[in-house]
Amino acid sequence: MTSTSVRRHRATGLVVLCAALVMTGVGYAAVSGTAEAAAPEASQQQVEQGRQLFLEGCATCHGLGAQGSSDGPSLIGVGAASVDFQVTTGRMPLAQPSNQAPRKVPTYTPEMVAALAAYVATLGPGPSIPSDSDLATNDANLAEGGTLFRTNCAQCHNFAGRGGALSDGKYAPNMMKATPREIYEAMLTGPQSMPNFTDATMPAEKKQAIIKYIAYLQSASDPGGLALGSYGPVTEGMFIWTAGIGILLAASVWIGAKVR
């Protein structure tokens, strides 16, 4: 009881602060005419909405207070970035327990995701959602990003980001659909079997270089023609044994037929 009242009390200050910020913001926008997104500071209302959504959609597995259960890990201290990543990529809510949470069409709107993230962020300190400046890649070096990608990511995600198998039916997914924000968050939070690349081991500039390289992979045209999925020599071998040898066998039958 006391704790709630304390929290309420603390939140009151927050509300006042937010209201003040919003007013200033509106005033500023009205004056300057451009809407500058201030770092999204969670409102009491948003947190409360997030808590409701959490109780409805997540608590069955993660526990009523997100402390974890046999069906899902504790979310205390995972940070807004983790929630944002998991829910915008549709991984959460998990449909059924399996050894991998696959990417799906997200079930929550961006506002709802923000609310969920805001709620989980209040439970304990953790990585926050990267800001636009974190995601700016204009100054990043593409080639350096390639080297970093091959050193840190290709062993699981393949040289072209097309994904690869891990042990016991787990896999590192194809990242052709991942947005820069998701990529950044994946590195920050290390979902499932992916290691996490904290800002200490991999500073923001390096992350930006990697993001730039992945964006290049997502849009690159293939100079050599059809890339056969960019899976390496296996699909090339399949191609030669089906289409390649197939065409030449047909040609031999045709030429070898008794045309006199």
Binding site: T151, Q155, Y231, G232, P233, I240, W241
Partner: peptide, 11 residues
Amino acid sequence: DQVTAGSQPDW
């Protein structure tokens, strides 16, 4: 120190 997933030789 680098390697890619799906490192395969020719068929």
